[in-house]
Design a protein around this nucleic acid. Structure first.
Lengths: 232, 232
DNA sequence: GGTGCATGTAATCAAATTGTAATAGTGGTT
DNA sequence: AACCACTATTACAATTTGATTACATGCACC
């Protein structure tokens, strides 16, 4: 559930430091020392964000970022560029290649964490670990708890993820295939109808607390999570 | 009371970074950007260890260290010198002035923590920590004792650390891999399933006192320590 | 060298979860 | 009313995941 970040940095001490800071801020980290190793990671799993050193042996961070922005599979992953002091003039070029933000080394852990959080909130709100509350329903990603008032709701892992996704993406219809992408993960080979079943399971779990009406069916389009009641 | 460390470093980002790493290792930190500010802190309280940047505006770290070593009140505080890469030749001079150790920037958090720990173990064998209490369960880090009321609970070292970690990180789910990181230490090569076994041992030890329900399993996510009962 | 404790791994068992398929139901249209 | 497309619900088997136990190794202390 915690956001997964990929750190691409050749200097081991710096990489370890960044990774350490991120872990303390409850992110999961993957590490790579160059573009090649990073590609290997990306082929396996798509992180929520990439921290990319400006200077890399072989292909530079800028070139690599540009490459990522051209591939549909990685285009949407936000990139934060790490530049050394004095390379600040290159800021413009860094952002030009498609990076979301840049941070100059040495950086303070608070600053780094803040920038990451800001970006994640924008592009992947469900990865921020913040408590969500909708219509009396509370979900706390940190403790993995869902409750209505003081009553705890019992959910399976998939229903939990599904609910979390919905709660962080209110009032928008998602098709089954889109839900499979966002909740199950891209490139999974699963029947679309399976989504129906999990929707059912989620509704059933919410039913005793009278909040199952939040999960709404939009015929022909998909599902939606909304506080506004549907006309009957 | 955790050990108190004084960080003397003029670059704010680096100072914050060091401070951050130390706090995660459960140290208290004081910060100073130059010799003058450091003296002000020292006049008030004597830290257990000083991390000193080699280069400081005004009086250099070396000079300042020498000064400290001449004052009876501060003579016994161990000093770790921070040098930038390339200044390594100065290592000798650094140690000459009385520093116990030196670390070159950039450094890995593990390395820094390890060196600090080594020195503190030698110099201040009892950097005492605070007693924790949750739901009738008491844990005293200094005496390595766990008790429920007047009854003592018998725990192995690993279970003790695990419990201590849990008690100081309540209501939050930790995956097996994260527990390995935080309780066993980073980068240990241990099977994730091993965590299960230690959880089991911990629960078994707590069972006779009726507090084993505090250790909760969150399917698909990890384990959690919480006073709130699980819904079932 | 022996003993006992602590620890990590592997094997086994039990239970929860998951995806699919089959069937029933719904709503809208002609 | 019959039909069609789509969704809801249920049952089920396979898979995953966690609990528990037994075992081998390593280490400290006799």
């Amino acid at each position: 559930m915690a956001a997964k970040l990929l750190v691409v940095e050749d200097e081991p001490a710096v990489r370890e430091m960044i990774s350490f800071v991120l872990k303390q801020s409850d992110y999961d980290t993957l590490e790579a020392e160059d573009a090649e190793e990073a590609r290997a990671h990306l082929a396996e799993q798509v992180p929520d964000l990439i921290l990319m050193d400006w200077m890399l042996p072989g292909m530079s961070g800028v070139e690599f970022t540009r490459e990522l922005k051209q591939d549909a599979a990685t285009r949407d992953i936000p990139v934060i560029m790490l530049t050394a002091r004095g390379e600040e003039d290159d800021k413009v070029r860094g952002l030009e290649c498609g990076a979301e933000d840049y941070v100059t080394k040495p950086f303070s852990p608070r600053e780094l964490a803040a920038r990451i959080k800001a970006i994640l909130r924008r592009v992947a709100p469900h990865a921020t670990e913040e408590m969500v509350e909708v219509g009396g329903l509370q979900l706390d990603p940190t403790s993995y708890r869902v409750s209505v008032g003081s009553q705890e709701v019992d959910l399976g892992p998939t229903e939990f993820r599904l609910l979390h996704f919905f709660m962080t993406h209110m009032d928008k219809v998602y098709s089954r295939s889109r839900l499979l992408d966002r909740v199950w993960g891209s490139n999974v080979f699963i029947e679309e109808r399976t989504v129906d079943v999990h929707i059912r399971r989620l509704r059933k779990a919410l039913e005793p607390y009278g909040v199952d009406g939040l999960v709404q069916t939009v015929r022909g389009a998909g599902y939606r999570f909304s506080e506004r009641q549907v006309a009957r």
